[in-house]
Design a protein around this nucleic acid. Structure first.
Lengths: 203, 203
DNA sequence: TTCTACAGACCGACCGGTCGGTTTCTATAA
DNA sequence: TTATAGAAACCGACCGGTCGGTCTGTAGAA
């Protein structure tokens, strides 16, 4: 086994164990010794690969953001009318909830750390802003192509993203009741169709 | 000073300090010694009033839930058409974000603890279910009184609550960009009016 | 006097991180 | 092909410090 292979193997075992332990117990409650025991790696090896426990957390966060970015980009870029593209993005909610049901408490952990650590905060907020801007641009497109009403794109993007986040979190905390796989589509459809029976058009 | 007065004063000072510390640092990172120092209470007094650090957390959670319950009940009960009542409830989002901007990280903390502690989980999920059921009932009313389309009330309630949660959390994490005070109203209006320009009525 | 509310020294467990030493790989020259 | 020197990966005992919680006392209310 070459050094490179050893290195990669150890590193990814640390990352995998850390994710598992952070997810089930949280950042603070997980000790470096925990991670080492779970991954079959010595403490020395751990600190050989990462300068601190926090660095592992950051590595996990960056990977997660990269994956999410990729999913969103590929779901939003199709050459279809905007409402269809919004529905595609909505499907992502179910996908994220399902596929990574184990990593969503992690997401909560990210958020909580962001609330108190400026570095993590930047790491979290920057991609999130990109995310919201992408939605706003998409809505702007929809307005220009005539398939959406002339709403404020920023406000609409905020609402859409909020709904997505809320759905994912609810699915994570309470899978039995709130974890409908079609929740995202339902939500977008409600937003597109409106909930009121007829006109309430005056502002 | 009577014993009762002393007792109440000490207890509420502990609670206040604990909330402040949990909010800014999180549950795990806050030590009992922190809380004692901040509140000017000795460790003996702390453990005289609460059997554990977790017990303080639970007391805080229960109080928070009671307050929220009360707010929702009073906002939803007015004798008005359902869409108006939904808008009232939406106003609550801004209110919660503003008034308790300091206690929302606490809410995140509640949620994270709930994800790993079954007792906290029950405490969190039960009132939350009531909450969602209240929304569903409200929507059912709206359908019957003819002001709302015949949507699935449970799904609609899920979407509404999700949006509210998402907005509050975004406002908490990123007040500068996402913390519009009128976000809740915007969202409800979008849901009521629909976003698409015209019919996309086929399912 | 008796009891409640509090005070604060103390305890064992545990934690993140360090460090001196060992093993395993790899490049190079004989 | 083999010998060797150095680098990289890894090991785990150890350290200073912190934490949640206990326990023995004391001052003032009842």
């Amino acid at each position: 086994m070459t050094n490179q292979e050893r290195r990669d193997g150890t590193r990814s075992r640390i990352l995998a164990s850390a994710r598992e332990r952070f997810t089930s117990g949280g950042f603070d409650a997980t000790s470096v010794a925990d991670i080492c025991a779970t991954s079959g790696v010595s403490k020395g090896a751990f600190y050989h690969h990462f300068p601190s426990k926090q660095a592992v957390f950051v590595a996990l966060l960056e990977r997660w953001i990269a994956e999410l970015d990729e999913s969103v980009r590929s779901a939003a870029a199709r050459d279809e009318p905007v409402p269809r593209r919004l529905e595609n993005l909505a499907g992502l909610v179910g996908q994220v909830s399902e596929l990574g049901s184990g990593q969503i408490p992690m997401f909560l952990e990210f958020w909580r750390q962001a609330a108190k650590d400026p570095d993590i905060w930047r790491l979290t907020v920057d991609p999130y802003r990109r995310f919201r801007e992408a939605f706003a641009a998409l809505i702007q497109d929809g307005i220009e192509e005539g398939t959406l009403r002339p709403v404020d794109p920023d406000a609409a993007a905020l609402v859409l993203v909020s709904t997505g986040i809320g759905l994912v979190l609810q699915g994570a905390l309470n899978p039995a009741e709130a974890g409908r796989p079609d929740a995202g589509e339902q939500a977008v459809r409600m937003l597109l169709d409106g909930l009121a029976k007829e006109a309430s058009d005056e502002s």
